[in-house]
Design a protein around this nucleic acid. Structure first.
Length: 520
RNA sequence: GGGUCGCUAGCUCAACUGGCAGAGCAUCGGGCUUUUAACCCGCAGGUUCAGGGUUCAAGUCCCUGGCGACCCA
């Protein structure tokens, strides 16, 4: 053995860790395996609680159970120890008495550390105070924890550590577990709901040879065998619409997309999108579907369609208010803007609202910029904002009543875009023109614009039926329903910079030292 | 990218204008057979993010860097 304890990230070696390592060695020396292969449970803790919901205080049943979980709290009281163990379904108290398992057994139990995984067998009972407990008859260490848990009362609150070591966050912070339970319920509710409507869930490629379907910078990667650069998808759109061409009436995909942009409380470089497409309908149906789907998710996850956002109660139950982009701007900025206006006139309005712009932008793009600066953040909603300029909507069909607009809406809740949908553009000639306009923007240096997707055009030249399409940011939906303000709270392992360089440096120093004085 | 704030024991946090670096929890030792963040007594635990500077003296002031939070673009 080396002369000093093994260090590893992120902390320096702790006495606690060394102590527990030594404990592991002692156990092995005594013939006890600290990491046994398996443990047969008779029930989960949740199942146990379900079976014994209401046992009178001071009862000892004749039911013997075998449960397993992580040891979270220990309360030793002389010849009696109370412990709290938790598995994936819940927590329960262990009642460990010297009278039941003897002095030696009790001391062995006492040698367990907080954080250890244990399996126990015992009789179901309640204490004098009525706490459901398992009176331990025998127990077994299932996995030794080497690192101590954070403070049992305050938990782990350092945000950076919480996200980097999410496993610890989830062990000790009830709120973290609550948020992810909501996330998983929401995702399951979406699949259930769409399935019940006849939608088919599909999976399309993550690696694309060309980015498309949204305005965003992609991540670049490289395929060695093909010797070609690829991008990670920024949207699901173009593949899903190929599937509508293929003859699927209703398809959806819920999956990860990647956008090469900054990190913030609202942005993580990889996030989860739901996109769905339905043949023969327009954006009106998409509105109905959106409000019903969101309300359904809230109902499943929370049991109510009311959510609290920024201290205010929002009602998600349909119907949601609908107003045009133009009317929204009139309402909140007090000016009437329309893509048909001369660009000079719209620039004057941009100046008035201190909206920066580029010379290449037309009235439609400027209109959207004005909306984003003056109006969007004030829309508490839920509200559907309809009819976006054609210039900023390269995949949406032209509005049936106004050739400068498209049949597109965004759902806004709490000042943020939650969903984006259109009557899909299915005219291949028009689509080619839009792509070419995007390609021009790209050539002019717009890193978020993309070129002509020839295969997509070929696909819709086979005929894309009239189609309604919808995209919902799942992370934002979960944030809304869970009532949290940072996207990192709803992503299990949010993006972070590599861990503290001084740790790496310290390890490098140790390596250098070990070269000078080799271990004997 | 700009601004503000933060980084102290394993965890959560203190340390007034520069003057011996502390508490609670966890750990360790002792006590306690119905606790619920159990409790009581005692011990130990520190590269104050890193590096440099000012000073008799730096957790504290200055500079550079790292990581993070919030606000702005």
């Amino acid at each position: 053995m080396g002369e000093k304890p093994v260090t590893d990230t992120p902390e320096r070696p702790t006495d606690e860790r060394t102590r527990r390592l030594e404990k592991v060695e002692r156990m092995r020396a005594a013939g006890i395996e600290p990491y046994p292969v398996r443990f047969d449970r008779s029930t989960t803790i949740g199942g146990l609680r379900e079976k014994f919901p209401d046992v009178e205080a001071g009862t000892e049943t004749d039911e013997v159970v075998r449960i397993a979980g992580r040891l979270l709290l220990l309360r030793r009281q002389g010849k009696l120890t109370f412990a709290t163990v938790r598995d994936g379904s819940g927590a329960v108290q262990l009642f460990v008495s010297e009278g039941e398992i003897g002095i030696e057994g009790h001391n062995d139990f006492d040698a367990l550390d907080l954080g250890d995984w244990v399996g126990v067998e015992g009789v179901v009972m309640t204490t004098r105070k009525g706490e459901l407990s398992v009176k331990v008859r025998s127990f077994q260490l299932l996995a030794k924890a080497l690192r101590p848990l954070p403070d049992k009362w305050h938990g782990l609150s350092d945000v950076d550590t919480r996200f980097r070591q999410r496993y610890v966050d989830l062990i000790v912070n009830e709120e973290a577990r609550r948020v992810f339970e909501i996330r998983f319920k929401v995702m399951a509710a979406i699949r259930d709901y769409l399935g019940s409507l006849g939608f088919i869930e599909v999976e399309t490629p993550v690696l694309h040879d060309q980015a498309g379907g949204a305005a965003a910078r992609p991540f670049l990667t490289h395929h060695n065998a093909l010797d070609m650069d690829l991008v990670l998808r920024i949207a699901l759109e173009l593949h899903l619409k190929r599937l509508i061409v293929a003859g699927f009436d209703k398809v959806y995909e819920m999956g990860r997309v990647f956008r090469n942009e900054g990190l913030s409380t609202r942005h993580n470089p990889e996030f989860t999108m739901l996109e769905l497409y339905e043949a023969f309908v327009d954006y009106g149906e998409m509105m109905t579907l959106t409000e019903e789907l969101v309300a359904h998710c809230a109902m499943v996850a929370l049991g109510t369609t009311q959510v609290i956002h920024d201290g205010e109660v929002l009602q998600l139950a349909p119907p949601w208010r609908r107003l045009t982009l133009r009317d929204a701007i009139i309402e909140h900025a007090g000016v009437d803007v329309h893509p048909s206006m001369p660009v000079e006139a719209v620039r004057v309005l941009c100046d008035k609202f201190e909206v920066p712009y580029e010379q290449s932008w037309g009235s439609g793009k400027l209109m959207l910029e004005i909306y984003e600066k003056t109006t969007e953040h004030r829309l508490v909603g839920p509200v559907f904002v309809l009819d976006y300029p054609r210039e900023v909507s390269p995949l949406a069909r032209v509005h049936r009543d106004d050739p400068t607009l498209t049949e597109r809406f965004e759902a806004i809740i709490g000042g943020r875009e939650l969903a984006n949908a259109f009557s899909e553009l299915n005219d291949p000639v028009d689509q080619r023109e839009r792509f070419e306009a995007q390609a021009q923007l790209q050539a002019d240096g717009d890193a978020e614009a993309h070129g002509v997707d020839e295969d997509y055009l070929r696909a819709i030249e086979y005929g894309l039926p009239p189609t309604g399409g919808l995209g919902i940011g799942i992370d934002r939906l979960v944030m809304l329903i869970a009532g949290v303000t940072s996207i990192r709270e709803v992503i299990l392992f949010p993006q972070a910079r590599p861990e503290r360089p001084e740790v790496i440096r310290a390890l490098a120093v140790e390596e250098a030292e070990s070269e000078i004085t080799p271990n004997s």
